[in-house]
Structure formats: structure tokens, C-alpha cells
Write a protein that binds this DNA or RNA. Sequence first.
DNA 1: GATGAATGAGCGTTCATTCAT
DNA 2: CATGAATGAACGCTCATTCAT
Lengths: 191, 191, 191, 191
Amino acid sequence: MSKPDKREEIVRAALEIIAEHGFHGAPMALIADRAGVGAGTIYRYFENKDVLITELYRELEERIYPVITEGYSEVKAFRERFLHLGTALLKYFINNPLDFRYLEQFHNSPYGVAFRRDRLLGEKEGCDVYRELFDEGIAQQVLKDVPLPIHFALAFGPLLSVARDHILGFITLDDLIIARTIEACWDAVRR
Amino acid sequence: MSKPDKREEIVRAALEIIAEHGFHGAPMALIADRAGVGAGTIYRYFENKDVLITELYRELEERIYPVITEGYSEVKAFRERFLHLGTALLKYFINNPLDFRYLEQFHNSPYGVAFRRDRLLGEKEGCDVYRELFDEGIAQQVLKDVPLPIHFALAFGPLLSVARDHILGFITLDDLIIARTIEACWDAVRR
Amino acid sequence: MSKPDKREEIVRAALEIIAEHGFHGAPMALIADRAGVGAGTIYRYFENKDVLITELYRELEERIYPVITEGYSEVKAFRERFLHLGTALLKYFINNPLDFRYLEQFHNSPYGVAFRRDRLLGEKEGCDVYRELFDEGIAQQVLKDVPLPIHFALAFGPLLSVARDHILGFITLDDLIIARTIEACWDAVRR
Amino acid sequence: MSKPDKREEIVRAALEIIAEHGFHGAPMALIADRAGVGAGTIYRYFENKDVLITELYRELEERIYPVITEGYSEVKAFRERFLHLGTALLKYFINNPLDFRYLEQFHNSPYGVAFRRDRLLGEKEGCDVYRELFDEGIAQQVLKDVPLPIHFALAFGPLLSVARDHILGFITLDDLIIARTIEACWDAVRR
DNA sequence: GATGAATGAGCGTTCATTCAT
DNA sequence: CATGAATGAACGCTCATTCAT
């Protein structure tokens, strides 16, 4: 197993175990085991558990981005673009429940809060397609006159909630319901 | 300090610490300290940490209910009732950030999932005003034709997200923004 | 409930619980509960748990003595007396399994060792019928020429072992087997 | 210190402390200390305290067996074989008082009872020399006509009692007394 | 005298991290 | 580089004992 391979295995193992059992149900020794490496090896690639967790988050973001933006064109109508990005994200979550559950764990934790604070304040790079789209929508007065974070909430709030319910088995989403949900989000944000 | 006082102090301390640091950042010894009682004392009132956590959740629910429903009248127009309940809940969260953060911690944890499963399947009692309202709205075709959990997501998803952002200091809500946010949620669910 | 009653209830409860679950499976609070008294009340009658345990032992000894010696006559033949005392003790244990298990717990513990040391060294009073009988047997050369403790071992060792097996359900004793067992013990000690 | 060394040290420390103070007088931390290892280290070798206790018991059994059976020959006369096994066991106990006291603690505890039940019912392997010897003696009518457990009681009961007395300093055994004691046991079991 | 709520030392156990090999 | 045995601080929880009522 070559060096980058080990790193990858560690990240994969961490994703699986943390998504399923949470940060505190994921001992480093178990992650190492599942990754097929020694416990000490993790510390060659990640300074400590916190770094591993944060790094994994960043990798997930990067993995999602190209999937979301596939077929996305900035020349399409605004509404269409909104629906595209919403639908793509929701479907990504449904198809990658481990990723979703990890992201949820992360957001709902001290890690996530600190991360988000950096994002908002430091203007670090993120899933900026969304930001650009909303900024444009506000500028063009297609979207309601509320601050950006409210729009994020109106769009992503239901989306995450619906994804969670689906993954936990409380509802079963199909294409029709997905479409109606995203359109409802559109009703929320549009003027 | 009288008997019920101690229980109350324990509950208060647990709320504070868990809201701030999560379940795993809240050792029983620290809760006891903050409550001004001995470590063993907690176990006179709560069988174990899990029970304390679940019980605290239930108490919060009970505390919230009357506040939410104050001034709520079933004879008012549907839209008005929706706005009332949404606004009341959001304001409650803003005014009681510890409660909000605790509820978030709870929902995003095995406790919360199990709890919710019971709610959905067992039809246990809960914040049923919401359920009744949505059921009525669907029946009367005031609301969009999507399953109940989708409506919950469309209404509560943004609300929780907005409350979180406010409490974490990412935005500052005022009455106007609150009103616009809830109205946007109304746009999402209404036909 | 009058004062001596409470003491009696405590002793009874302690016997039951300790016999069943051992010293460490018998919290004072549980004993108090079973006795129908407050936890603090035990300390009015017994200085601490150790004293309760030792006191209970002494009471059992006193309870056993008259049962054992009933119908016992020092004028009967030596062998007959031996068989009487052996049979009586074994039957007592079988009929009072709680007593037996308590005594076993006690003997096999620091308490028991200290107690026995006092007995042997300090010549404190005990179940002296046995001692007198064996002393006489040795003096009269009816018994083998080995020290007194060896005789105790030869007589009581099998007896306790057999009682334990019966109480634990490994064997079922009847009058015939009991008789044969005690006679075998007689073969062991007699010249 | 190499790996098996640590395990050995832990086992030795556990034997010492438990033999001296009983299971409940032997905190894991103390065992670790005495073994010269960290508290957590014990758990690398033994899943938990119960497993350590049971494992230690098994090791003692295995340690004893070859000592007992040294010079034992199945072709010798029955009486001689009985005396050999009895004497060997008693001497082993005298020479290894820690082993003896540990075994006593074990037998007189839930562990021991469960263990023995398995032995009797499940026909698991154990110190089967004894069983075979007694079975043969019963079959050949050399031994009295009583069930096997009675024979065990008649032979081991006094033996354990005598060993205990010696180890606690209540008597001092020498070869003569040992021989007489075992011969007395022989008188007990033989027809 | 009787109570039982309160205590806190002490237990068995876990796990992030280190470091000799 | 990689390992995994070793660590020990920290956890949740128990229970003998005390003392205000």
C-alpha cells in the first residue's frame, strides 16, 4: 500500500465510522483498524483527531462540488439554476448518506461552528456557487429582500431536514417529491 | 436548599453545560459542581446520564409549549395561525438560546433519533399543535400536496437554521426580518 | 415497630441479602429497605457494616447451638454422639440454606479469619460441644492421634462441602446419604 | 519488558493481591501498580476484571496439574494412588499458599459456582485424574456406595480445611500429620 | 429515636496519544 | 516510515456513612 493510499484508507474509515456512530463513537484505534493501518500511522497523516475530522470535512466539500455543478450553466435562467443546485445537492445527500451524516455531525459540533465562523468572517473559499447565485439573485431583485444567511436558511434548511428524514427512513423520497420540495424552497426565496 | 431545589439546580446546570459544550463536554462531575451538589446527588434524581438528558429534553418541551401557544386561537385564519406558531417558536429560541442549543444537541444525537422515531410511529403526544395545524392545512388544500414531513421540513428547517445563525452571532434578527422569514416559510408551504 | 423489632428486621434483611449476593452485593441502603427502616437507622444499632456482619455471625451461631444440641446427651456412646452432632449440623444447614450461605461467606473473608484467630488463640467461647467431644475422644483414644484442628477438618470439611453441593443443587441429599456421609466422617476420625 | 512479561506480571500481581485481600480488595489500579504497568495496560491482556479473574483461575489449574500427577502411575494400587493424589495436592497448597487462597476465593464466589456448574453439567475437562480415580473406585467397589460428589467432599473437604488452617498459621503441618490426614480421608471414602 | 437526602472517595473502564522497535 | 503496546487522565457510577430535620 503506497503512502497516499494509506491516507485515503484512513479518511474512508473515519467517514464510515463517524457517520455511523458520531465523533465519540469513533476511537482512533477503531478507525486505524478499519483502515488497515496501525494506530500510530494515523498521526503521520493527521496531527490529531481534531485535524483528521476537519480535514475530512474539507475533503467532503471538495468531493461534492463537482457533482453539484455538473451540467450547471451560469447562462440559464435564475430559477432553473436554483432548482438545479437544490436538486443536485439533495440527490447527492440521498445517494451518499455517509457523507450527509458526517456533514451533519460536523455542523452540529464545536468544529462546525468554528468552521462556519471562519467561513463567514474570513471570507474563506467554500461552496461559492451558492453564494454567487444568491448574491446575484438579491442584486437582481429576483430574491426576497432578506439578508443572505436567511436565504441560505430558507433553501438549505428544508433540504437538510428532508435528506435526514429520508436517510433515517422516516420518509421515502422520489423524483416527484424532490422536485416539489425544491420548488417549495424556490417559493420561499423568490420574490 | 430544599429537595426540589436541588433537582432544579441540576437540570439548570446540565442545560447550561450541555448547551455550551455538548453531551460529551458535560461530565457529570462538572454538572454537579455547577449545580452546587455532590456528584452522587445527581443519581438520586436521575438514574443515569441518559435519563437526565432525556428528562431535560422533556422538560424543555413542556416549558416551550405554553409560550408558543399563548394567544393562539384555532378560529383564526390558517395563514395567521401558521405565522403565529412560526414566529412564536423562533422568538422563543432567540430569547432562550440555551434551550435552543440543547434541543439541537438532542435532536442531532442517538437520543433525538430514537425519540423522533417513537413520535412518528407511536403517535406519542408532542408539540401537536403543529401537527394538527399541518394536517388541517393539507386536508383543506391550503398547503401544497406533499407529505407531512416535507411540510415540517419546509417550515422548521429554515426556522432552526435562522435561530442558530442568530444565536451564534452570524446574523442579528429583528422583528422585521423574523416576520419576513416566517412569511417566506409560508410561501414555501402554501399552495 | 418497637426498638428490638427494628434490630431484628435489620439482621434478618442482612442475612437474606448477604446470603444471596455476598457482602459486596449487599448495600446498606438495600438492607435498610428490605428491613423496612431508614438507611441511617442501621447505624443506631450497629456502628458500621463490619460490626453488623460480625454481629450477625454471632447471632447465627447462637441460633444454631440449641438446635444442634437438642436431644444430645453426654452419657451416650461416643460414636453415637459424634453421629448426632454431625447429622444435626448437616440437617440444620440443609433446612436453613440462608444461614449456611451466610456462614460460608463469613468464613471465607477477612472477617472470618480474624474471628477464627480470636477463637483459637483467645479461647473465646464457641460451639464448644464439638470441642469438648473431640477433646474427650482424643483423651480416650477413641479418635486418631492427630491434632484437634485435623479432626475438625475431617469432620466439618466434608460436611460443609456436602451441604454446599446440596444447596447449590449439585446433589440432592436424603436421610440415607446423610447417614452414610456422617458415618464416613466417623471412619475418618475414629481410630 | 517484553510483551509476555507484562502479562505475566499482571497475573502475578493479581494473584498476590486477590489471594491476600479478596476480589473486592483488589482494585485494578492496585494490581497495575504492583505489576509495574499502567492501569490501561491490563485491558490489553484481559477484557475486564472478570476475565482476568477467570483466566487466572485457569492458569492456576494448569500449573497445578503436572505437579500433582508427577510420579503418578495408573498401574499402582488404588489406595496408593489415592494417597498420592491427596498428598500431592495438600503439599502443593502448603508450598503455594497464594495459589491456595486464590482458589478458595474463586470457589467461594459467583465465578466459582458458575465454573463448577459448567464442570458438572458440561463435562468440561478439569482435574480429571481425580474424577477418573473416583469413578474407578466406585465401579470396583473399593469405595463406599455414595454418589461421586460425596466422595469429593470426603476427600477434598478435609484437605482444603487443613491446608487453610496451616496457611493461616492455626496449625503446622509436617509430613507425618499430612500422611495421617490423607490416610484418614482414605478411611472415609474406602469401603 | 428515626429518617433518608446528601456526600465524595473510590471503583472499573476507555481512548487519544506517544515512542521504542 | 510504520507500528501497536503502553500509558494515565478522565469518565460514569456506587455506596458506606453522616447529619439536619
